[in-house]
Structure formats: structure tokens, C-alpha cells
């Protein structure tokens, strides 16, 4: 089942075309890597998919709703985590969880139950009353991911979730991503780490507003006769 269906998406800002006739789809439960150089138009696409930007033309259906017509229904069914900001520093761990839970319409009892389970799983129970700013970046990002999936969205959008995080924590973070995918949460992730791209079910590479490659990492490497996605990326985007 396709959970994201993008057809001929065009996004223009004045005379600048950020997305030029994008067409792709993402299956339910898939981990979809969305690669591209800085300024390739990834963030714009992500914003359109999340209902933050209205496309200039083309159709975008996310979680069964057209983003141009029902952005609010789309927003209810997605989770969003950005690299730039994830949690409120001056609130405690549990307060952060509570805020997001309420914003997504969960009841207090339900939030309490999910919070306990989540903290247990992340081994963060002992720091639940601490302010988020006292946590390390790695812990913060793991917590942020769990918060973004607290309301059990059908898709979670991750915008460079691991930038600035050490390799060990990145690996643990990807374990969380796999866990989510096993629970049928579709993961749409942008990253600049090409080793992470290898972990994805499928990856797309974007350049100057267009998708220039899209397939499983294995098949892409074979088709272009390269050893790694890193090599492929450098060759295609140059």
C-alpha cells in the first residue's frame, strides 16, 4: 500500500523552481532515504509533504489525504522531527512528552502510559524529571524521535536527525528507526551520511529540484557500477 503518492509536484517561489515535476511514492512501513546536496530542494519537498507549503501544481497524497485540500488531516497523521530543534530545553523530559501528547490530542492517562513505556525502552526513566538541556545531544535526539512517534503516526518525517551525533549513538538511533518501521510506521528520512543511506529500504537522490535516481541501495549501486552510495552520490550530484 502506498502511503505517500507524489505526482508531478511543482513548487515555485517566484521565478525559482525548487521542485520540478517530482513523481514518486513510498510504501507503508518503508524506510525511505531522501538524499540530495544542500539546496537541492529536499526541505521544500518535506514541507510540502507535511502540509506546511501548498504546492504550485501537481498532486500530493499523504496518509490518504490530499495535502493541498486537507493539510490539517495530514498533520494529524504524521510526526515530524528536525535536526535544528527537537525538544524544549527548559522543560523536563516528561513535560516535553506531555506537551506533544496533548497537542496531538492524546488523553492524560494514555500519555502517562506511553511515557512510562517509552522511557523504560530508552532507559531514560531515571532522568525523567531532568530539564532537557542537561541531556547529551545523543539522548536528546533519541528522545525527540520517540516523542515524534508518541501519537503513533502512520508516517514520521526526519529532517537530518543525526547530524552532529557520534557514530555509536547514530547506530542506536537507527535501531529505533527499524523498530518504528517494524511497527508499520513509515519513515521518511533525509541525511548527509551516506552510510545511513545504505540502511534504507529505498533511496532517492535529488539534484536541482529533480529526482535523478530512485531505487534500493543495492540496485542503484549495481546499475551504476559503484561500490557505495557515497561514490554514487558524489558522481551524480557533482
Amino acid at each position: 500500500m502506498e502511503i505517500i503518492i507524489v505526482k508531478d509536484l511543482v513548487m515555485r517561489f517566484g521565478s525559482f523552481t525548487a521542485n520540478d515535476r517530482l513523481t514518486f511514492s513510498v510504501a507503508k512501513g518503508e524506510i525511505f532515504g531522501f538524499l540530495g546536496a544542500n539546496g537541492a530542494g529536499k526541505t521544500t519537498t518535506m514541507k510540502v509533504l507535511c502540509g506546511l507549503l501548498k504546492p504550485t501544481s501537481g498532486s500530493v497524497v499523504v496518509a490518504g489525504y490530499d495535502v493541498a485540500l486537507h493539510p490539517e488531516k495530514v498533520k494529524r497523521n504524521i510526526g515530524y522531527m528536525s535536526q535544528k530543534f527537537s525538544l524544549n530545553d527548559d522543560l523536563t523530559v516528561t513535560e516535553n512528552i506531555l506537551v506533544y501528547g496533548t497537542i496531538y490530542g492524546l488523553g492524560r492517562a494514555e500519555i502517562g502510559k506511553r511515557t512510562d513505556a517509552m522511557l523504560e525502552r530508552l532507559e531514560l526513566t531515571q532522568v525523567r524529571k531532568r530539564l532537557v538541556k542537561t541531556l547529551s545531544l545523543g539522548w536528546k535526539q533519541k528522545l525527540a524521535f520517540s516523542v515524534a512517534t508518541l501519537h503513533r503516526p502512520s508516517i514520521v518525517f526526519l529532517d537530518e536527525p543525526t547530524s552532529g551525533v557520534d557514530p555509536v549513538t547514530r547506530r542506536r538511533f537507527w535501531e529505533l528507526i527499524y523498530e518504528a518501521a517494524e511497527n508499520d510506521i513509515t519513515v521518511f528520512v533525509t541525511t548527509h551520511y551516506m552510510d545511513e543511506a545504505e540502511y534504507c529500504d529505498r533511496v532517492s537522490i535529488m539534484n536541482r529540484g529533480q529526482i535523478i535516481a530512485l531505487d534500493t541501495p543495492q540496485r542503484l549501486k549495481q546499475a551504476h557500477g559503484v561500490e557505495s552510495i557515497n561514490e554514487l552520490f558524489v558522481r551524480m550530484v557533482r
Partner: peptide, 14 residues
């Protein structure tokens, strides 16, 4: 500045 506005805008809050 923090980028948290994006998170809020991507949430069901209008």
C-alpha cells in the same frame, strides 16, 4: 530562530 516554529506548524495546531 530555534526552528521550533516548524514543529508547531507541522502539528495539528492551527
Amino acid at each position: 530562530e530555534l526552528g521550533s516554529m516548524e514543529i508547531l506548524l507541522a502539528s495539528p495546531l492551527t
